[in-house]
């Protein structure tokens, strides 16, 4: 169920024509855009996600209601159809959205821009990072933090100097998952950011559109997404993954 469809896809790829297809301007443009936006959204996920994970790991001592609300809020983008996420982003940042007019006053308009792609990707990828890091934080040995505190380190310093290095593998694993999820993002992006070559047309969108006119191109694009995802996931060493899932 997991491997067979992908194997079927690979079997249909027009290998002899692949190099030419891959070197074509639209494909390179989409590839570059996808890599750049996925890297940017991964960076934002790290900045936003690590504090969120720390908060979530601490939340055990909270009353049930706020704790569950917080957990649900973090999980929602994971289970929501991405198109709905895109609509939600339009309702927030669109011209007639809640924040849109205020942004417009500063001459900033987010929809249909490359930053909109990054926002859409961040929205869907953030939970992957949060949960990876949270799982690791829960399993850290609290005695080291307590020791750091008795030695006079503040909470922030303890977190940065003691806790974070201890969970570094999980942070890396989360970032990788985040990056690959961002790379594959389609629904929220096409809804919120649109589809313009070189600006907002990422690999998955280019692949979907190519399917309408030239299936060979679509397959070539699919192979790139697959290859990049596999390469990135292979970089993730085996022993890091258990930290993400279990523990």
């Amino acid at each position: 169920m997991l491997v067979v469809p992908l194997a079927a896809l690979v079997a249909r790829v027009p290998w002899p024509e692949l190099p030419a297809l891959l070197a074509s301007q639209p494909v390179l443009e989409a590839l570059w855009l996808s890599l750049a936006t996925a890297a940017a959204s991964t960076a934002i996920c790290l900045v936003l996600g690590i504090p969120m994970a720390a908060l979530l790991a601490e939340a055990d001592s909270w009353p049930a209601v706020p704790r569950r609300l917080l957990r649900t809020a973090v999980t929602i983008p994971l289970v929501l159809p991405p198109v709905i996420g895109g609509i939600a982003l339009l309702m927030l940042f669109g011209r007639r959205g809640i924040l849109g007019p205020a942004l417009g006053a500063f001459g900033v308009s987010l929809p249909f821009t490359t930053p909109a792609v990054v926002v859409a990707q961040t929205f869907v990828a953030l939970p992957f990072l949060v949960f990876a890091v949270e799982g690791a934080l829960r399993s850290t040995d609290r005695r080291f933090e307590a020791a750091a505190a008795t030695l006079g380190a503040g909470r922030v310093r303890t977190f940065v100097a003691v806790t974070l290095p201890a969970v570094a593998p999980a942070v890396a694993a989360g970032a990788v998952l985040c990056f690959t999820r961002a790379l594959g993002e389609f629904g929220a992006t096409i809804t919120f950011a649109g589809s313009l070559p070189g600006v907002t047309r990422t690999l998955p969108i280019a692949s979907y559109l190519a399917l309408q006119s030239d299936p060979a191109d679509a397959l070539a694009l699919a192979v790139i997404i697959l290859a990049v995802s596999i390469a990135v996931l292979l970089l993730l060493r085996d022993r890091w993954l258990p930290g993400v899932v279990a523990r």
């Binding site: 096409i190 649109g194 589809s195 313009l196 070559p197 907002t200 979907y208 309408q212």
Partner: peptide, 11 residues
């Protein structure tokens, strides 16, 4: 000078 090229007319 389009800002987006959509995949169907309803979009």
């Amino acid at each position: 000078v389009p800002d987006t090229l959509e995949q169907d007319v309803k979009a």
